[in-house]
Design a binder for these strands. Structure first.
Lengths: 158, 158
DNA sequence: ATCCGTGCAAATACTTTGCATTTAC
DNA sequence: GTAAATGCAAAGTATTTGCACGGAT
């Protein structure tokens, strides 16, 4: 297992203790599944599968409860990727990037937060809106999948 | 009923005909519910309630199918607002603005698209990502609800 | 008359909840 | 030992699907 995965896992475990939560087997397993994930966003279903393949039995309801716990102490965020998709969970140990998600192939691009800073600052100063960037993802299409015609219609008025 | 609501309704109906879809009573009712909505985003549940209060019985499955039809011909978009929230539908007759949604009070701010143009252009030119702006909303907190502390924790490393 | 759209009913996901038992501390 | 966490079972919500009937064109 790569070093950074272990580090992430250890860090999450440390944070769980700090928060005063008990370090149980299911919690260890969920944390490991999160840390080991190749993808930046992972669904509850994938976590459950990962745990069952590696550790053994686990109840779905337990996983949901653990994810809620982790979100409550700020270790993960729950975000909704697209229409018809189930909720995804994302480790928030480092918040220095935003996510662009391709609606075609599902791939995620991580973009330095700095690129967005001026827009978010504008939204704050001009419109009084404090953006929570890691609560949502930018949807669109990536380079490989090409520009998706976004519902063109006969009239020109769009 | 205000003029613009009627106009929106008529326009949608016109587009339905143009698309070669049949103009049925349920479709009229759903379109009216969409056009009459005060909110820019409306859930299937609200549409169903609106129709039942004004027109009469309608099947939930029919509403979902109609909304899919309308999305297919580009009259509405389906977007996922926040975690644990059901899907929302949004009329896309005019696309000149983006949406900021307050996670606290649920209010929506409509911001001129121009404010976002340079960011989206950057994402395209530098990262090859074509943003589909009306497929998602910017989440955060509005002026009235104040800045929500986004999971502060003891360590500084965020 | 034809074919699209709807109602009805049932199924599927995903997620949440209550309660008794187990486990970390 | 005690409070917190889990397993189990059941329910809830949102949404989808198959099929036969009915209505728009």
């Amino acid at each position: 297992m790569p070093t950074d995965v272990i580090l992430t896992e250890d860090l999450l475990i440390e944070r769980i203790r700090e928060a005063g939560l008990r370090l149980t087997l299911p919690r260890r397993a969920v944390v490991r599944a999160l840390a080991a994930s190749e993808e930046p966003f992972i669904s509850a279903r994938l976590i459950i599968e990962h745990v069952r393949e590696t550790v053994g039995r686990i109840e779905a309801s337990t996983v949901y409860r653990i994810l809620d716990d982790l979100a409550r102490i700020g270790l993960v965020h729950h975000i909704q990727l697209g229409s018809g998709q189930s909720g995804r969970w994302h480790i928030t140990l480092d918040h220095d990037h935003e996510h662009l998600v391709c609606e075609v192939c599902g791939r995620t691009l991580e973009i330095p937060h700095a690129e967005f800073a001026s827009l978010f600052e504008l939204l704050r100063s001009k419109y009084g809106f404090q953006t929570s960037p890691h609560h949502f993802a930018f949807l669109g299409s990536c380079d490989d999948c090409g520009p998706q015609d976004d519902h063109p219609h006969p009239r020109g008025g769009d």
